[in-house]
């Protein structure tokens, strides 16, 4: 019997009273890659930000329903008052579809979550940054220019930078919004290999357009149809 990592009950998502998602009740197994497909504008990205309450930072969004995620070894209702939202977003962290490096150096970008968490030990920060950049196969390209502005990187490099920035938090759940969309075939394959390696530590929910990618790496496959999430 597979262990459930994420369970949603009757999730409804509205943008300015417009219903995007309705009554989504699904489960994602622990340590697997679940892929979500669907036409653009159907609400895939919206679904991801329900899982770490990020929608609460966006004006005009309203969400109802229940989400339970296994955190620190037990299922917890993430919308209950006991949840520390900063902690939640570090454990259940998202990489956006559009790369969003902050206007700061490459190094500071990757170190940013550690800085936010109050980590001061410079040596440890350097180690974590290096290991995260190596994981996403960006280290060799940027190791000599860590002080340069992160926004000067190419689109594919930026996307890997943002993935590294998320990995340095050691999330339990990784929400990926089209993670290989702006990568060339070889880097995309390297990232797919990374995701497969990450499965032992991380549960991955991934939005993707590519059927072949789903075939290659996804353990289960969902599709958004008319605001509902259907298991294929």
């Amino acid at each position: 019997m597979k262990k459930t990592k994420i369970r949603t009950r009757n999730i409804c998502f509205q943008y300015h009273k417009k219903q995007i998602l309705k009554n989504i009740s699904v489960e994602f197994p622990k340590g697997e890659i679940s892929a979500i497909a669907g036409p653009s504008g159907s609400g895939k990205s919206s679904f991801l930000i329900v899982l770490n309450r990020l929608w609460e930072e966006i004006d005009g969004v309203n969400v109802t329903g229940k989400v339970e995620i296994e955190l620190n070894g037990q299922m917890q209702d993430i919308y209950s008052g006991r949840i520390d939202i900063r902690q939640l977003r570090r454990k259940v962290s998202i990489v956006f579809q559009q790369p969003n490096p902050l206007p700061m150096s490459i190094f500071k970008n990757v170190a940013f979550p550690l800085n936010l968490a109050g980590l001061k030990d410079r040596e440890r920060i350097s180690r974590e940054v290096e290991s995260a950049l190596k994981k996403v196969h960006l280290w060799d390209e940027v190791k000599d220019r860590l002080k340069e502005d992160g926004r000067l990187l190419s689109g594919g490099q930026q996307q890997r930078l943002c993935l590294a920035r998320t990995l340095v938090m050691r999330p339990e759940v990784l929400l990926l919004d089209e993670p290989t969309a702006s990568l060339d075939a070889r880097t995309a394959e390297a990232i797919e290999q990374l995701l497969i390696q990450l499965k032992s530590r991380c549960t991955i929910v991934m939005v993707t357009h590519y059927q072949d990618q789903i075939q290659r790496i996804a353990d289960s496959h969902f599709e958004v149809v008319n605001g509902n999430l259907i298991n294929r």
């Binding site: 770490n52 990020l54 930072e57 966006i58 900063r86 902690q87 977003r89 570090r90 962290s93 998202i94 956006f96 559009q98 969003n100 902050l102 206007p103 940013f112 979550p113 936010l116 968490a117 920035r165 998320t166 938090m169």
Partner: peptide
């Protein structure tokens, strides 16, 4: 808006 959402997604408080 994307930059505005970046830090909260990485575990920042509002004031951070």
């Amino acid at each position: 808006p994307l930059i505005r959402l970046t830090a909260p997604a990485l575990g920042a408080s509002r004031i951070q």
